[in-house]
Amino acid sequence: MKKIPYGRQNITDEDISAVVEVLKSDYLTQGPKIAEFEEDFAAYVGSKYAVAVSNGTAALHLNAMALGVKPGDKVITTPITFVASANCVRYCGGELIFADIDPDTYLLDINKVRELLEKDTDKEIKGIIPVNFAGRVVDMEAFRVLADEYGCWIIEDACHSPGGYFINSKGKKVRSGSGRYADLAIFSFHPVKHIAAGEGGMITTNDEELYKKILNLRTHGIQQDFSKRIYDDSLWYYEMQELGYNYRLTDIQAALGLSQLKRADEGLVRRKEIAATYYNYFKNKDYVKGQSKVIEGHAYHLYVIEVEQRKELHAYLRDLNIYAQIHYVPTHLMPYYRDFGWKEGDLPNAEAYYGRCISLPVFPTLTQEEQEFVIEKIDVFFKK
Results as ranks from 00 to 15, higher is better:
Val288Phe: 08
Ser25Gln: 04
Tyr323Asp: 10
Glu208Tyr: 14
Leu320Ile: 03
Gly127Asn: 08
Gln223Asp: 12
Lys293Gly: 02
Ala350Met: 04
Gly198Trp: 12
Arg136Phe: 11
Asp26Gly: 05
Pro335Ala: 11
Leu313Pro: 12
Ile167Phe: 07
Lys262Cys: 01
Asp286Tyr: 07
Gln9Asn: 09
Pro130Lys: 05
Ser359Lys: 00
Lys193Cys: 10
Leu96His: 03
Thr365Val: 12
Leu217Lys: 02
Ala52Asp: 07
Ser188Ala: 15
Glu351Met: 04
Val288Met: 05
Gly171Ile: 05
Tyr303Thr: 06
Glu242Asp: 11
Leu347Trp: 12
Leu217Trp: 08
Val374His: 10
Ser359Glu: 15
Asp40Ser: 12
Glu14Asn: 09
Thr204Gln: 11
Gly72Ala: 09
Leu60Thr: 04
Gly68Asn: 08
Cys159Leu: 00
Tyr237Ala: 02
Tyr337Pro: 01
Glu39Leu: 06
His220Ser: 02
Ile155Phe: 08
Ile222His: 07
Ala134Asn: 13
Asp183Pro: 03
Gly290Lys: 06
Gln241Trp: 00
Met140Lys: 09
Leu116Lys: 15
Ala52Phe: 12
Leu249Trp: 08
Val145Met: 09
Ala52Asn: 10
Arg310Asp: 02
Asp15Leu: 01
Thr277Ala: 14
Glu36Met: 10
Val45Glu: 06
Ile295Cys: 01
Ile186Thr: 15
Gly46Val: 04
Asp251Glu: 12
Ile375His: 06
Leu23Asp: 01
Glu369Ser: 08
Met240Lys: 15
His298Glu: 04
Phe166Ala: 01
Val51Phe: 04
Ala197Glu: 11
Leu62Glu: 05
Ser178Tyr: 07
Met202Ile: 15
Ala275Met: 05
Leu258Ser: 08
Glu208Asn: 05
Asp346Asn: 14
Lys272Ala: 15
Gly135His: 03
Ser292Asn: 13
Arg248Leu: 03
Ala142Pro: 01
Leu28Glu: 11
Phe82Asn: 07
Thr365Asn: 14
Asp319Trp: 03
Ile186His: 09
Gly127Ser: 05
Phe373His: 13
Val304Phe: 07
Trp153Phe: 15
Ile378Lys: 05
Glu39Gln: 14
Ile4Cys: 05
Ala35Thr: 14
Leu333Trp: 09
Asn111Tyr: 13
Lys123Thr: 03
Lys262His: 08
Lys212Gly: 00
Thr81Lys: 03
Arg318Asn: 14
Glu36Gln: 15
Val307Trp: 12
Gly135Gln: 03
Val19Pro: 02
Ile167Cys: 04
